[in-house]
Every structure is written in structure tokens, then in C-alpha cells.
Nucleic acid binder design. Structure first.
Lengths: 108, 108
DNA sequence: TGCCTATATGGTAAGATTGCCATGTAATGG
DNA sequence: CCATTACATGGCAATCTTACCATATAGGCA
């Protein structure tokens, strides 16, 4: 595999690390500031081990960093520009809903 | 599942539709302008049916639109802001490599 | 030291994704 | 009508992802 292929694979891995509902919720919460795992668990629900694994995926991809403080581990976004992208994702959704409005059910 | 959950699921689906090396290549190519499936097949390689399925994933997510013209089908990005996001993904990669530079192998 | 709390990791079963082959379909040319 | 071209879809095996449970680790406190 050449360099170009490797680059695309790395980029895909970073994007894939965002591509899960719980991980999006985590990113949005971290956009407000540093949070401990316990905070994030409260936000996304589910098992602590599941949250921990979601964080490991994002940490491995380089999206988040952690900082240990006593018993707790605090996570934060490593590259805040990620948040700006959410607006674009919402634009895709808006375009989709606009299409439905333009061509409602039964419209020729 | 409530509305908030549904929204996150939709967003995740849109992002997931980008999270694949071949699909990133396709998006980058489409950023340059409309392209037929045959063009895209040349760019990403592999089977035509595989390219076609990647396009279907992105079409379903609302990332691309198609336009038939005779025997060919031309695809284009539906919401161009997607491209801007690539810069942010590269920033994540740059941060990761910077970390390696700051803490090379064997550094305490 | 021994216990408690916060988080991480291993195991695993269910489900999703991927990529190829074979086949289907629609437009075009003869 | 028939063949060809460009693309899409069905099927399927290999692989990856996810979420839970059980267990491990590490810090703080008695």
C-alpha cells in the first residue's frame, strides 16, 4: 500500500471515530469543556465500559486527549475545529428535508 | 427512541457515509466537479459494483446527488462544505505527528 | 494493608460493513 | 430486434463493530 492509500486510511479512521451517535454526543459535550468519564457516561447512558471504549476509539484516532486527576480521567477535544463540521452535517440534513418538502409524497 | 436520539443517529449516518478510504477519494474527486461513475471507478479502482455501492451509501446519506445522461450517471456533491472538513481532519493528523515529534521513541 | 471508587480491558455474541461475482436494467447503435 | 455499454442490485463470505458482562488496575482513604 502506497503513501496515498495510507493517508486516506488514516483520514477514514479519524472520521470513523466520529461516526457513532454516542461519540457525537461525547464530542458535543467535550466542545463545552473538559469532562470526566463519569460526566460523559451520564450524557450518553449505557455501560461504563461501553463509554470507555468509545473514548478509546477517539483517543486512538487523535480526536481527544485525556488527563488523569486522582481517580478521575478528564477528556478534552484535541482539535476543536471538529465542532464546525457539525454545522455542515446539519446542512446535509437540512438539504434532505428540503427535498422532502419540494417533492412530498405522491408528487410527480 | 426520542427525537434527540434520532437526530444523532442521522448525523452519525451522514458521517459514516464519509468514513471509508474509497469514499473519501470519491468526495475529493467530486469536489473538483461532476463526475461519471466510470471516472470515479478509475480514481478508486476495484470493481464497478463496489464503486456503485459506495455511491449508493453516500446518495442515501444525502451527501451526493446523481444525474443521468444517456448511458452515464454523473454524481456531484450536494453540500460542498464537506470539503472544508477535510482540513480539520488533516489538523488532527498533524497534531498526531507533532506529538510523535515532541516525544520521539525512547524519550522520557 | 484492605476496601472503595473510577476507569480500562478481555471476552463474546449479535449485528453491520465490505468487496467480489453473477445477474438485472436502461439507453444506444446497428 | 439484438448486442453493447454503463450502471445498479442480489447474494454471500470475510471481516469489523458494538454493547454487555466479568475482571483488572490504580488512586485515595481508613
Amino acid at each position: 500500500m502506497d503513501d496515498t492509500q495510507t493517508t486516506y486510511k488514516l483520514k477514514a479512521q479519524i472520521i470513523k471515530a466520529m461516526a457513532h451517535p454516542s461519540r457525537l454526543m461525547i464530542i458535543e459535550e467535550l466542545a463545552k469543556g473538559e469532562r470526566c468519564v463519569c460526566d460523559l457516561k451520564r450524557v450518553v447512558g449505557g455501560d461504563m465500559s461501553t463509554v470507555s471504549k468509545h473514548l478509546a476509539v477517539m483517543r486512538h484516532a487523535g480526536i481527544v486527549e485525556d488527563r488523569k486527576a486522582g481517580l478521575q480521567v478528564f477528556y478534552r477535544l484535541r482539535v476543536p475545529c471538529i465542532i464546525q463540521f457539525f454545522g455542515c452535517v446539519e446542512a446535509v440534513m437540512a438539504a434532505t428535508f428540503a427535498t422532502f418538502r419540494e417533492r412530498p409524497l405522491g408528487d410527480a
